[in-house]
Design a protein around this nucleic acid. Structure first.
Lengths: 218, 218
DNA sequence: TAGATTGTTAATCGATTAACAATC
DNA sequence: TAGATTGTTAATCGATTAACAATC
């Protein structure tokens, strides 16, 4: 009934809604309007209503949205109902941080296996998880029902790891390495690219206050 | 001559171009076409040409772009010429990882001061940096000429830290906490929101292969 | 009933892509 | 000269916002 193509921009806002709704729910707030949401999330209320309306009629005119009901609906849409098992490759600083982090992700994703190409790390413990060698990747993915892979290796190795994930049958990848990975049909790749985020931040920083054209170097 | 407003989408692609150009330069490749770039970065060549053309005529017809020249130009555009000093607040797993990481960021940004609200962490060493108490934030920002702040505290504290950054005179913030921060005029805020990235990944994962409407739960 | 707020259509705005003359 | 590739205009596509009837 709604096989209508949903734009990526819309899907990317859903987790933002969800997160804030969870906060409201914890504060025992029962109802919220698109107006309220818009103010808190810095978005246009019309946009929020439109986003949600793609998936159904979740609100009540004159009243707003029932917080818990909307949470339930968004979780369904994002398929956060069932737990997904995650593999992480690359046990450098960032990889280890993410393994310990887990609590943030644990909403519905859990890192259940950790890998590193460096044989000397084999067997090391990271937050109750034993570091495994890459040779075991395929077998682990199968045995543990892993569907998501996280890449936290240095940039030059990232594509190789991605290829191994794909070969092992993983369905989604979150890549932290600062490279653009070649996409494979049937496997979704998202980039968590904070170095790019930092570099583009620089662009806006001096542009901000009324320095007009400013081609001088001060 | 070009005070023309550049779209955010364009600016966000520049670091991606820059990164790949740096790779090419290291491989001693002198020239690159928008075609080549497009293939490697999974972008439309016309878009790349248009993006670059906002800032000047950097290419040569029939030839392409000189790699090193283009690198230089993009660095100028993004204002990566001079080093920017960065403060980081929150020495949990992620914060510590970023401090050690530095190499990736060091292109032009350097974490020069680390803070934590937890007094018991005061004086701890993280990669040659001493953890400071929040009371010292303003003074440090002034003394060390810090212009960028990174937030790696738990979500409920993030807005408070952002406010302190703003009060201290910081010009740009990169926020890793999973909350939307209230923007302040004159201060640019970017979000490094990998939990949202993970949640939206879930949406696309089963949609991928031809499971059509699939309202069953298999 | 009066006030509030949704869902949705239409209008606007912006970003991407195609196409091609200019030119190296 | 012939082939390649830019810079740029025009066409297309998509996303955001405004406006308002429906209705709680």
């Amino acid at each position: 009934m709604k096989p209508l193509k949903i734009s990526e921009a819309v899907v990317r806002r859903l987790p933002i809604y969800l997160r804030f709704l969870n906060e409201l729910s914890l504060s025992n707030i029962l109802t919220v309007s698109s107006q309220d949401l818009g103010e808190k999330l810095d978005l246009n209320p019309a946009q929020i209503r439109k986003d949600l309306a793609y998936f159904g009629e979740f609100g009540r005119k004159g009243v707003g949205y029932n917080v818990d009901y909307l949470i339930e609906k968004i979780r369904q849409i994002l398929k956060l109902d069932k737990m997904m098992n995650v593999a992480l490759v690359g046990t450098g600083n960032l990889g280890r941080a993410l393994c310990n982090y887990n609590m943030y992700i644990k909403d519905n994703m859990k890192i259940v296996a950790v890998f590193d190409a460096d044989q000397s790390k084999k067997g090391t413990l990271i937050n109750h998880l034993t570091v495994r060698p890459m040779q075991e990747l395929s077998a682990s993915v199968r045995e543990l029902g892993i569907t998501v892979g996280i890449i936290t290796v240095p940039a030059p190795e990232a594509q190789n790891v991605a290829d191994q994930f794909v070969a092992a049958g993983i369905r989604g990848i979150l890549n932290f390495a600062p490279v653009v990975l070649k996409a494979t049909p049937g496997v979704r790749i998202h980039h968590a690219d904070f170095t790019a985020e930092l570099l583009s931040l620089a662009y806006y920083m001096d542009n901000i206050k009324g320095s007009k054209d400013g081609d001088g170097d001060l």
